[in-house]
Each structure stands twice: as structure tokens, then as C-alpha cells.
Design a protein around this nucleic acid. Structure first.
Length: 110
DNA sequence: GCGTTGACTATTG
DNA sequence: TCAATAGCCAACG
């Protein structure tokens, strides 16, 4: 139903991220394409996740969203990158010596 | 309505 | 592989 706040770009992004299964990771471009229909709006996805509230941080699996290089690229909250890596490891995601994940193995595509 | 900023991506060297 | 540059989209003042 149109007119609801759930139709906001924010909610759409949060819903798309919530669709990512546990133990899997996705890229900003994938979420962008699922929400806006354009992989070029990946920056908008990162901006939306940066606007996540404390409550959303515990509800939306933002830690499963990484860049296309399979690497964490966070600059919103100090220590977020470290926390994201820790949460991913808890779900079974392994990071190499370069803090990179294998999108070919953990990558998720809608 | 314009310019700036940002948790991006692809290309080039 | 890393660094720098260009392109892209949405929100903010």
C-alpha cells in the first residue's frame, strides 16, 4: 500500500538487507539494484545504513553488507569495521589476512 | 534549486 | 595489489 512509511527508500533498503540469510554477505551494489533498480546507487545504500538507528542496528543485519571488493569499508561509527568483522565471524564468515571475504563463497544475490 | 558530502563501483596507471 | 580519478545517486543546508 502506497503512502506508508514502509515504502520509503530507507525501509526498502533495510528490508533488502534483512533478506540476506545468516552466514552470507552481499554488496552495496546488489542492495542498490534490488531497491532502486540501479547498481550505481550503491552510495545511497551506504548512506541509508549510516542513518540506521540504534534499534535498527540490532535488527537490520548491516554487518552482512560489504563493498564489491569483499572488504569492509565503514566510516560512520568508530570501531564499526571491527564490530562488523566480529559479527560476520560469529555467523561463520571467515576473513583473510587482508580483511577480505570470498564473495564467490559467501556472496548472496537476490 | 545549487553545492557539498558519503558505510560505492569501475577504470586506468 | 594499491593509488588516484571519474561517474553515479540521494539527502542536507
Amino acid at each position: 500500500m502506497a503512502g506508508s512509511a514502509d515504502d520509503s527508500l530507507y525501509e526498502r533498503i533495510y528490508a533488502a538487507v534483512h533478506e540476506v540469510p545468516r552466514g552470507r554477505v552481499t554488496t552495496y551494489g546488489t542492495i542498490s539494484e534490488l531497491v532502486t533498480g540501479r547498481p550505481s546507487a550503491a552510495r545511497t545504500v551506504g548512506w541509508a545504513l549510516a542513518a540506521l538507528d540504534e534499534a535498527r542496528h540490532d535488527e537490520v543485519p548491516w554487518w552482512r553488507v560489504i563493498n564489491a571488493k569483499g572488504r569492509i569499508s565503514i566510516s560512520g561509527w568508530p570501531g564499526a569495521a571491527e564490530e562488523q568483522r566480529r559479527r560476520c565471524e560469529v555467523e561463520g564468515i571467515r576473513f583473510d589476512e587482508r580483511d577480505r571475504t570470498d564473495l564467490d563463497a559467501y556472496g548472496w544475490f537476490g
